[in-house]
Design a protein around this nucleic acid. Structure first.
Length: 279
DNA sequence: TACTAACCTGTACG
DNA sequence: ACGTACAGGTTAG
């Protein structure tokens, strides 16, 4: 089954990627830089010469697509954006990125993360280009408030520092969370100052192997209201803890254990329909 | 438990 | 120009 690099990178999962020319994407992934050439996406090159399975090629994509094709809407989304994949990200980078993403927009998130990487990450040269690796936990944990504010974090500055400290101190252990089940892992993440339901689900889906995670953000809510007014209806404007849980249960019941893939297709579709910008 | 307002920052709109 | 709204939410009350 094919991989569509553009669709996958431009679907709100990652922020520190940049296209050079018409075919080459370079991206920061933790302590690594990745290079994806659209003419051969299965050969991802890496600064660390590591094999990270960026496109989750070990997932049985055909089977997953079959499993999640439960209704007309999702079939349309899959047809409209073929080869859209979930990307497997570095957990710490993903964790910080989505804390930074709260109540912000893609351009802003990207800019802030770039400044964080430049200020706290190591500079490396790869394929004759310069990059800044994503900062290590200890660097962010020991950052001063003023340094973090200078990156444009605003009120999220203490969130980022505290979240990094949780990792350094071992209260958040990504290898452990990968092995835990969805609910247990989510419960741990929610404890972190600055992480709520939505951010936790992003981290779980994009970096901790929890494919039943289904981040419910503004756009997905909009898409559910627009496309599934009967099936996933809910009252009120705000989405409370309880409503979030209930809605997630209904979603997994409908789409099954790979619901996270559906979220990605629906998110891509609703944003494209509203002509929103990507990277 | 459920609901609201306030919140840094940057940009797009009138 | 300059105010206002809003953006992939979360927290505190």
């Amino acid at each position: 089954m094919q991989i569509n690099v553009d669709h996958s990178i431009n679907s709100g999962q990652v922020f520190l990627w940049e296209k050079f020319g018409t075919k080459k994407w370079y991206g920061v992934n933790g302590a690594d830089i990745l290079l994806v050439d659209e003419s051969n996406p299965k050969k991802v090159q890496s600064y660390q010469k590591s094999s990270c399975d960026l496109f989750r090629e070990k997932d049985d994509f055909d089977k997953i697509i079959k499993t999640i094709s439960k209704d007309k809407i999702i079939k349309k989304a899959i047809k409209e954006f073929p080869g859209l994949r979930l990307l497997r990200q570095d957990p710490f980078q993903c964790y910080i990125s989505f804390i930074v993403s709260a109540n912000s927009n893609i351009q802003n998130i990207r800019h802030t993360l770039q400044r964080l990487a430049k200020k706290f990450g190591d500079k490396v040269t790869f394929d004759k280009k310069e990059f800044y690796l994503f900062p290590e936990p200890k660097r962010l944990a020991s950052a001063t408030k003023a340094e973090l504010l200078s990156c444009g974090l605003g009120y999220r500055a203490p969130f980022v520092k505290d979240a990094a400290i949780q990792v350094v101190d071992g209260w958040i252990d990504f290898d452990h969370l990968k092995k835990a089940d969805y609910h247990a892992a989510k419960e741990s993440l929610i404890q972190v100052y600055g992480i709520g339901n939505k951010v936790a689900d992003c981290i779980l889906l994009f970096s901790l192997e929890k494919l039943e995670a289904f981040p419910l953000d503004r756009w997905i809510i909009r898409s559910l209201q627009q496309y599934y007014p009967q099936r996933f209806s809910f009252e009120g404007k705000t989405i409370t803890d309880k409503k979030y849980r209930l809605l997630h249960e209904q979603i997994v019941q409908h789409f099954g254990p790979y619901a996270g893939y559906c979220q990605q297709f629906l998110f891509k579709m609703i944003r494209e329909a509203n002509q929103k910008n990507w990277l």
